[in-house]
Design a protein around this nucleic acid. Structure first.
Length: 504
RNA sequence: GUCCCGUUAGCUCAGCUGGUAGAGCAUUUCACUUUUAAUGAAGGGGUCGAUGGUUCGAAUCCAUCACGGGACACCA
């Protein structure tokens, strides 16, 4: 790290000049007594008064200088704090002797964080502003901000230096406020329903609960490898065995796979498990959850998503097999006929392996012909058992499972089902996965004998659900890349960053 | 993984079929006491992502690499 850039050098010299004048360019406290938002709210009455100023009111605000307009013996600057932007009028004759010429004009600039005291007034152009009678630098910024009008356009810089993105782009701040609220509301919703928030291990001896490649780390004291968790599912079910009847966990999962607009190596989900309930109860609570989010987020029920509009008042529900013909336009006569589906896929120039079973082929039809058409929130229910290894079979139709996925704007948002709690069946399914692993499927589920042992003591009939928080926030904020809802998305190291990983 | 696009001043971007670097903002100096991306004048600032190659000459053409973006395939 070096500060050899000419602009940085100039600013360092200004910080030194401030010190030479007895001014600390990095003050250790502030006298701020109001925020910009409160200032605007409290003083909005001035617009209605004849004399649009009140010298008897006095406020101290603080923030970063975003704009700076100097006009001889007076200036306008705009400062911004987290709550908003405020214009400050700074006139030479209202400040201490020489301060305006020697300090304000020469040593304070855009990017610096300042504190200003004064009274409120409305300018000739009708902008409520602060008339400064004292001004103090709180923090000298030695790197210049990006260009004031276009801001920061370079996505790479926005992600690598998110703080600059946040400084320059209030829409980005808004997105992350919504994300924070979503997580907070999610927690409160489930707590209010009587769920217990729990924390289960992030470092697993066996990476289970999903089919995905894990990150591996090493525990020196024990001399063993540990896996960053790919899902909390198996631990949360152990807690149901233990007698907790409603648990949830909001936390990160880690998957050692590709990165793109909808995948980050670490992502946030909520998983919740509810004893003595079925997937039908989960559909009900999911609808309530969305109602709750929209009520508390102050968002309209009809939200744009790119070219689309999603109506969160229009939840619907349809069985997967039915959706193939009703929504996907696949001939109803073929949806339960393996050979006919194969022929249909081929006639649509889609790849289909003859080794695929009926359930997999139905899943293929769904992915190709239905998924993208599910714009308003849609529960797709009764997935074939072949593509639902952890879900309970339907009592009447054992080829199907008591499962649903929720789709919004053509994307999967949640996956839920009545849980498999037959320990013998679970053991057999794990053994099936081991066979798949032996024949080359490196994402097949690991055997977890301890989990089977847990089930053997009896897990009450339970329904469980996972919701991808990142994707949910994408929907709610009309963002189309997961990087835009993650404060610090995963990025490759740049050349000048030392990578302590193993050499290729 | 594959394909396409991008990388030029602190930032946002021009730079044509190769002739040796441009603008706006920012910065420096000057003027200006109600501006709204303030305005007017003058100046400084660049290993043109990296490394090779072609050429008398490369920001420009070619190759390789790095990083980023987008699309496709798999996973949430």
């Amino acid at each position: 790290m070096a500060f050899e850039n000419q602009y940085v050098q100039q600013r360092i010299e200004k910080a030194e000049a401030l010190r030479a004048l007895g001014i600390d360019p990095y003050a250790n406290h502030s006298e701020r007594n109001t925020t910009v938002e409160k200032f605007h709210n409290v003083n909005s009455d001035l617009f209605k008064k004849e004399d649009q100023r009140d010298e008897h009111r006095h406020y101290t605000v603080a923030g970063r200088i975003k704009l700076y307009r100097l006009m001889g013996k007076a200036s306008f600057v705009k400062i911004e704090d987290e709550s908003g932007m405020l214009q400050i009028y700074v006139a030479r004759d209202n400040l201490p002797e020489n301060f305006y010429n020697d300090v304000f004009k020469k040593l304070i600039e855009v990017g610096d964080i300042i504190e200003v005291s004064g009274y409120p007034f409305v300018t000739q152009h009708g902008e409520l502003s602060l008339h400064a009678d004292s001004l103090k630098i709180l923090t000298k910024a030695i790197s210049p901000l990006p260009e004031k009008f276009h801001g920061i356009q370079d996505k790479e810089m926005r992600y690598r230096q998110r703080y600059l993105d946040l400084i320059m782009n209030s829409e980005v701040r808004k997105t992350f406020h919504i994300r924070s609220k979503v997580i907070s509301l999610t927690r409160r919703f489930f707590e209010d329903k009587g769920f217990l928030e729990v924390e289960t291990p992030m470092m697993h001896p066996i990476a289970g609960g999903a089919n995905a490649k894990p990150f591996v780390t090493h525990h020196n004291a024990l001399g063993i490898d540990r896996f960053l968790r790919i899902a909390p599912e198996l631990y949360l079910k152990r807690l149901i065995v233990g007698g907790f009847e409603a648990v949830f966990e909001i936390n990160r999962n880690f998957r050692n796979e590709g990165m793109d607009a909808t995948h980050n190596p670490e992502f946030t989900s909520i998983e919740f498990y509810w004893a003595y309930k079925t997937y039908k109860d989960l559909i009900t609570i999911t609808k309530e959850y969305f109602e709750y989010l929209f009520d508390h987020l102050d968002l309209p029920k009809r939200l744009p998503y790119g070219e689309l509009e999603v109506d969160f008042d229009q939840f619907s529900e349809i069985e997967l097999i039915q959706s193939l013909s009703v929504i996907g336009g696949v001939p109803e006569s073929i949806v339960n006929d393996k050979e006919a589906i194969l022929a249909f896929l081929k006639s649509n120039n889609l790849e289909a392996k003859a080794t695929m079973n009926l359930g997999q082929l139905q899943g293929e039809l769904f992915d190709e012909f239905v998924e993208a058409k599910l714009i308003n929130p849609t529960f797709i229910t009764h997935y074939p058992v072949e593509i639902s290894p952890l879900a309970r079979r339907n009592d009447e139709r054992p080829e199907l499972t008591d499962r649903f996925e929720l789709f919004i704007a053509g994307r999967e948002i949640a996956n839920a089902f009545s849980e498999l709690n037959d320990p013998v069946d679970q053991l057999q399914r794990f053994e099936g996965q081991m066979a798949a692993k032996d024949s080359g499927d490196d994402e097949a589920h690991e055997m977890d004998e301890d989990f089977v042992t847990a089930l053997s003591y009896g897990m009450a009939p339970t329904a469980g659900q996972g919701i991808g928080i990142d994707r949910l926030v994408m929907m709610l904020t009309n963002q189309h890349s997961i990087r835009d809802v993650l404060l610090f998305p995963a990025m490759k190291p740049t050349h000048n960053q030392t990578n302590h990983g193993e050499e290729e």
